[in-house]
Design a protein around this nucleic acid. Sequence first.
DNA 1: AATTAAATGTTAATAAAATAACAATGTTTT
DNA 2: AAAACATTGTTATTTTATTAACATTTAATT
Lengths: 212, 212
Amino acid sequence: MKTLPGKTVERLSQYRRALITSLAANHNYIFSHELAAILHITAVQVRRDLMLIGYGSVMRKGYDVRELIRTIGTIIDAPTGLNVAIIGMGNLGRAITGYFMGKRTNMNIVAAFDVDPQKVGKVVAGVRCYHIDQMKKLKGELDISIAVLTVPPDQAVSLTSMLVSNSIRGIMNFTTVPLNVPDNIHLEEFDMITSIEKVAYFVKENGQQAGQ
Amino acid sequence: MKTLPGKTVERLSQYRRALITSLAANHNYIFSHELAAILHITAVQVRRDLMLIGYGSVMRKGYDVRELIRTIGTIIDAPTGLNVAIIGMGNLGRAITGYFMGKRTNMNIVAAFDVDPQKVGKVVAGVRCYHIDQMKKLKGELDISIAVLTVPPDQAVSLTSMLVSNSIRGIMNFTTVPLNVPDNIHLEEFDMITSIEKVAYFVKENGQQAGQ
DNA sequence: AATTAAATGTTAATAAAATAACAATGTTTT
DNA sequence: AAAACATTGTTATTTTATTAACATTTAATT
């Protein structure tokens, strides 16, 4: 299958979690417009995304929830599951670790790393924190593919080099520092300050008059 | 001025922080391609964004860093500054509060709210945590415009209703629950699980062969 | 002073994403 | 069994975002 658009992948992840919730509420079938309503998007968007992954329903009955969950899994999950490490066990690192607790995802947070001796050795939500110097060794042992970067800004660049030289395959960057990595490493960035400043901008604009 | 595209607003926020850093390093002028390099985007993108806000440089000298910082401020900042409240002082709430420390933004985190008696009364990074029941009262007193929602999933919907009925103007939703708010309230959402699953998908795809 | 070079601002082209349109399918109703 | 209806999958259109193209400006060089 051709690589899916990023936005579609994002929605598939959300569909799946909505479907799991829906299943827990004993809904075995779901219409595109119901799924759309949960995510506050349009039914067309849902159908188009499902078209892209080649999923079809028995018409007029809606989608088989269990089967759709499975299908989304075969598309977006790696066959073996991927292991994730949290780099920086501060508040954000702990928050993300907590987010994964009890979520049925294909990923496992297998380790956290930090430089702070206070944190090294501690276990948060089942995840052990190691000293960053052990990354090289544990990367292979624990088969870590993805790093979630939640360190202070001044350490972002140097730790990224370290990750790159350890052949990490994907990085989710939560620092406020834009990173640069080779093409074969997938990089996703999210900047808290930006996102909140964006809200502020649109609040200001909405205040004056209409508009998005 | 016409309302800017969301993506442009995001970049303006990032430009500004890059410029502040640049200024601290004693750079008084900056070329579009230099600014682009910091953010790992193209110079055209930078120039196009600045065109949208009507900013012009003295050609061949690059942009006056101080002036550009100011100009971006006049565009994206609200004249008076906007006050922000953190709803849910867990790990993520504390992380975000920390992110704002020392950042020169137009926004102030003026309060945090929680239900946990352990948290109520505590001060984190200069921000006091109040009981959520005091929201109604303090919203007006502290002139809170924006809420950052960092609560457990099961509380997201009810707290959002509370925020809406208290006439909040913008919400940044960090819970995994998609929210629905009236049109006059600006809602921005970010889902940690989705973002990391997205990285995993592209890591998987890149592993098999090429592609983004 | 002419030429070259480096940058900018803007219009044009392309690509990506979302939305609309609609024929096809199957269900229910009459 | 025909008609009306609800839902799907897909193609077409529109909108949004990015990239390319290029004329224009200014500085430096010959």
